[in-house]
């Protein structure tokens, strides 16, 4: 069973619909016990880093998310759910985030002709995915996919064993997005032996 973490950070309907389209059983939950016992965990997110962190604290989910991300079980962060896995975000005047991954999240520079938020389809290793974001994660050793905007090369995807996270929205990236979710669903969930 796949748990989709609900921490009042945006619309989870699209994520649930995408898993349903793949025939995967997924539940939307904010129960730490359900997250701890799920085979797979999806950590979505839309909105701002500070309110996301505040919501996680209020709902008592900070440890549940960190434990799941570091458990070796398949874990998938999406958009803001990727950004706040890093140590720090410059958003909202600077916010310390979950620190599951080392790295910093920054705002796109002001460059004429490059609108922010960056909204639309961008290339990641020859495939195009749908992005919506004003902040980006710097390149880190775990970066597994790179995209470029406003003169910046940034982390579009990270992979650390079975911990995957993407800046783009696979649930809204058409066929290529579904293919990525399908690949993630095929990851073993038998501990971390093959990490």
């Amino acid at each position: 069973m796949t748990a989709i973490i609900d921490y009042r950070a945006g619309n989870l309907t699209s994520v649930r619909n995408a898993f349903a389209a793949l025939g995967a059983e997924a539940v939307v939950t904010r129960d730490p016990a359900a997250i701890a016992s799920a085979d797979r965990v999806v950590f979505p997110g839309v909105g701002a880093a500070r309110s996301a962190m505040d919501n996680l604290s209020e709902l008592g989910l900070v440890n549940a998310v960190k434990s799941a991300a570091m458990s070796g079980r398949p874990f998938l962060g999406i958009c803001l759910g990727m950004q706040i896995l890093f140590d720090h975000s410059d958003e909202d005047g600077g916010v310390d985030t979950l620190g599951v991954l080392r790295g910093r999240v920054m705002r796109f520079p002001r460059v004429p002709g490059f609108k922010v938020p960056a909204i639309g389809w961008n290339d990641v290793g020859g495939r195009e995915y749908y992005f919506v974001h004003s902040y980006y994660a710097e390149l880190v050793p775990e970066t597994a996919g790179v995209a470029e905007y406003a003169g910046v090369r940034f982390t579009a995807m990270v992979k650390k064993g079975r911990l995957w996270a993407c800046q783009f929205h696979p649930e809204k990236s058409g066929r290529v997005g579904l293919e990525l979710l399908e690949e993630w669903l095929k990851l073993d969930n038998d501990g971390c032996a093959k990490c």
């Binding site: 309907t13 699209s14 619909n17 995408a18 066929r175 579904l178």
Partner: peptide, 11 residues
């Protein structure tokens, strides 16, 4: 809106 959301995988 719900029916469209179930049927398409683009924004």
């Amino acid at each position: 809106v719900e029916a469209v959301a179930r049927a398409v995988r683009i924004p």
